[in-house]
């Protein structure tokens, strides 16, 4: 079976709706099949990666730590749209760092998140074989 390029597009804030958590679970399940997986965060989806989430008082599961496991699942192409951050008064510093260990570079720890422009994001979408939207 040839490897297909999967892109998971995340456009919803966490907690208010189930989309963010559903997407994360589908990504983790899909990652078990060793496809070429990329994640896109745009519009309100960028809120999913906000650092410092603490859900104790709202009585929901805080799934933000699970994004940090994506590197273990070989999901290390995580694209965040600059324009979406700007519209929300956010910068890369407001997001939790996500890293992976590069097998081909003596397991050096590298950043998974790459901030891209809308035009670059469009190109990433264009080049994907399968796009799943959440």
């Amino acid at each position: 079976m040839s490897t297909k390029k999967f892109l998971y597009v995340n456009r919803k804030a966490p907690y208010g709706t189930i989309y963010a958590l559903e997407s994360l679970e589908v990504v983790l399940i899909g990652a078990a099949f060793e496809q070429d997986v990329s994640l896109a965060f745009l519009d309100d989806g960028v809120y999913q990666l906000a650092k410092g989430q603490s859900t104790e008082e709202v009585g929901m599961k805080n799934f933000s730590p699970t994004y940090r496991a994506l590197g273990d699942y070989d999901v290390n192409k995580i694209y965040v749209e600059q324009e979406s951050l700007d519209a929300r008064g956010l910068t890369l510093d407001d997001l939790q760092p996500l890293t992976y260990e590069d097998e081909d570079d003596d397991w050096a720890e590298k950043d998974s998140i790459k901030v891209v422009s809308t035009a670059e994001m469009a190109e990433i979408m264009e080049q994907s074989d399968v796009v799943m939207s959440f």
Partner: peptide, 15 residues
């Protein structure tokens, strides 16, 4: 405790 998930077997083996 750290990631709030039980890892898949491939990930467990590697980790």
């Amino acid at each position: 405790e750290e990631y709030q998930i039980a890892p898949a077997v491939r990930v467990l083996t590697k980790a």
